[in-house]
C-alpha cells in the first residue's frame, strides 16, 4: 500500500535545492575555509538521495540521466591527470599553481589548479556514494 507523502515531496523540492546550493558552496569554499571536494560531494549525494527517497528510483533516473558508476573513473581520471599535468610543465608530480583572473560579475578572483583535483574528488565521492546507495536500493 502506498501512503500519501505529499508533505515529504513538497519539502524535498525546496530542501534539495538548498542542499545542492550549500554543497556547491562547500565545494568552492574549501581552499580558504572548511569544506572541499569530499564534504561537498557527500552533501550533493545527500541531496540526491533525499530526492530518491521522496520520489522513488525511476523519476529521478529520468531527471538525472547520469550513470553514477562512470562518475567514479571520470573523477579519478580528472584527479590523476591534474597530477600528471605537471609533467608537461617540467614540474614534479602533483605540483600546483594559481593565477588571478578577471571574470565578469565576480571581478578579480584567484583560481588554483588544486580546484581541478578537488573537482575529481567531488565527482568520485558522488559516484561512490550513489553507486553504493543505488546498488543496495535497486535490488529487487
Amino acid at each position: 500500500m502506498r501512503t500519501n507523502d505529499l508533505i515529504l515531496r513538497t519539502t524535498t523540492a525546496l530542501i534539495a535545492f538548498i542542499l545542492l546550493g550549500f554543497s556547491i558552496y562547500l565545494f568552492l569554499a574549501g581552499h580558504q575555509s572548511p569544506g572541499g571536494g569530499f564534504i561537498g560531494g557527500l552533501m550533493t549525494s545527500a541531496a540526491i538521495v533525499l530526492m530518491y527517497m521522496a520520489y522513488g528510483l525511476e523519476p529521478i533516473a529520468k531527471i538525472i540521466p547520469v550513470n553514477f558508476k562512470l562518475m567514479i573513473p571520470a573523477g579519478l581520471l580528472i584527479a590523476a591527470l591534474t597530477g600528471v599535468g605537471s609533467f608537461v610543465f617540467g614540474e614534479s608530480f602533483l605540483s600546483q599553481t594559481y593565477g588571478h583572473f578577471h571574470l565578469p560579475l565576480f571581478g578579480d578572483i584567484e583560481l588554483a589548479t588544486a580546484m581541478l583535483f578537488d573537482l575529481g574528488v567531488y565527482l568520485t565521492v558522488i559516484g561512490v556514494t550513489l553507486t553504493i546507495m543505488l546498488t543496495i536500493a535497486g535490488d529487487e
Partner: peptide, 16 residues
Amino acid sequence: VLPIIIPLLAGIVAVF
C-alpha cells in the same frame, strides 16, 4: 612516480 601512475591511469581508463 611513473610505476605508480601508469597502472593507476590504466586501471581508471579500463573501467570505461
